[in-house]
């Protein structure tokens, strides 16, 4: 049996799942839309993965989760490590592209920049108060212009004269775009202008004061957009690499960390593929017992609470130790 490690990155918009072997090579990858239902997407992904590796002499020996739904997913699967997406993305980039010093990552709801020196994360930034320039805004604009998001980037590359669009805020950007569109500017010029505006905003906001050195890696769902990649290359005046697995880099990092975690713990906590068949229900309530008003989350199967988290005082965490042997 070959040992493999599962990395799951459940983001706001998309979910990436990766299987790595002992040599940290990608055996299988999946890219799904989260569609606001993290539990369902993880279960579906698990089923699809199982189908793909059925009959192969593989054994899942470690699971890592990341992304904004990492805690929920970790409880669900029985993860060996639950890690933030910044660490995972940085780790995956150093593994996949040698000599990387800058990682540009743009996902569905957030964008980040990670600076690495000699394979170590030395600085990072993540958009704080504004989601302009992230995948969901691009999605929205593509839908409004009636262009499939997959063709968005190619259209941008056709442009000869990108127009200038305000990129500071998605509301300003949209009204600027509508304005340009109404005076007859061609679609490719508008889209290319939008790409440049988003890149300008990203470099100014997330990348403020950061020293961007080559090699530059561009990953996350938006890296599929050739227009944005071209705009980055133009603005940075250096080549930008989009790795083959750009959409699932978070998952790769999580799987790498899972291997490390199992190495020190000795055994995985993975609950097996049966997880995809269980009728899980996540619910939450606001505890009113003190002014903190914690949002407590319950994960239940058939009314039985398997795990509970989110409370600050520990009162609600009593159930951590029960159910399916999960220990958190």
């Amino acid at each position: 049996m070959e040992k493999v490690y599962l990395g799951v990155d459940v983001g706001s918009v998309s979910t990436g799942m990766v299987l790595l072997n002992e040599h940290l090579e990608v055996l299988a990858e999946l890219y799904l839309r989260t569609q606001g239902q993290p539990i369902r997407v993880v279960q579906e992904g698990l089923k699809a993965l199982e189908k793909r590796i059925r009959g192969m002499p593989l054994k899942i020996c470690g699971v890592g989760t990341t992304g904004s739904a990492r805690t929920l997913t970790g409880v669900l699967l029985g993860a060996d490590t639950i890690k933030n997406e910044i660490t995972c993305h940085g780790l995956a980039a150093t593994h996949v592209v040698s000599g990387v010093q800058t990682v540009l990552e743009i996902g569905g709801q957030d964008s980040k920049m990670i600076l690495l020196r000699d394979g170590i994360v030395v600085d990072f930034a993540m958009n704080t108060v504004c989601a302009a320039g992230t995948g969901s805004f691009l999605d929205h604009q593509a839908a409004r212009l009636n262009v499939p998001i997959e063709e968005f980037g190619e259209l941008a590359l056709q442009s000869q004269n990108p127009v200038r669009i305000a990129g500071r805020c998605s509301v300003f950007a949209e009204s600027d775009m509508i304005h340009k569109q109404q005076v007859g500017t061609s679609m490719p010029d508008i889209i290319a202008g939008l790409c440049e505006a988003l890149v300008r905003n990203y470099l100014n906001n997330v990348g403020k004061g950061k020293e961007i050195r080559p090699n530059v890696v561009f990953q996350g769902g938006v890296a599929a957009n050739a227009g944005i990649k071209a705009a980055f290359e133009k603005a940075l005046e250096m080549p930008v690499t989009v790795p083959g697995y750009y959409g699932v880099m978070g998952g790769i990092g999580a799987a790498m960390l899972a291997r490390a975690a199992v190495e020190s713990s000795g055994e995985t906590r993975f609950k097996g593929f049966e997880v995809s068949e269980m009728a899980y229900q996540a619910s939450s309530f606001e505890c009113r017992d003190c002014p903190n008003c914690c949002e407590v989350v319950n994960l239940t199967v058939k009314e039985e609470v398997l795990a509970r988290w989110g409370g600050r005082c520990g009162k609600w965490a009593d159930l951590r130790e029960v159910g399916l042997g999960t220990r958190f």
């Binding site: 904004s68 490590t81 890690k83 933030n84 997406e85 910044i86 660490t87 780790l91 394979g119 170590i120 994360v121 030395v122 600085d123 990072f124 993540m126 790498m256 960390l257 490390a260 975690a261 190495e263 020190s264």
Partner: peptide, 30 residues
């Protein structure tokens, strides 16, 4: 939480690097 955790990861690595010369992120669990 995400940012804090990443920041803490980062400064652990920095300290480890300073202490041991070259500790990779894989040793972090230890």
């Amino acid at each position: 939480e995400t940012r804090l955790e990443a920041f803490v990861d980062m400064i652990w690595q920095k300290r480890a690097l300073r202490n041991a010369g070259s500790r990779s992120v894989f040793d972090r669990a230890k």
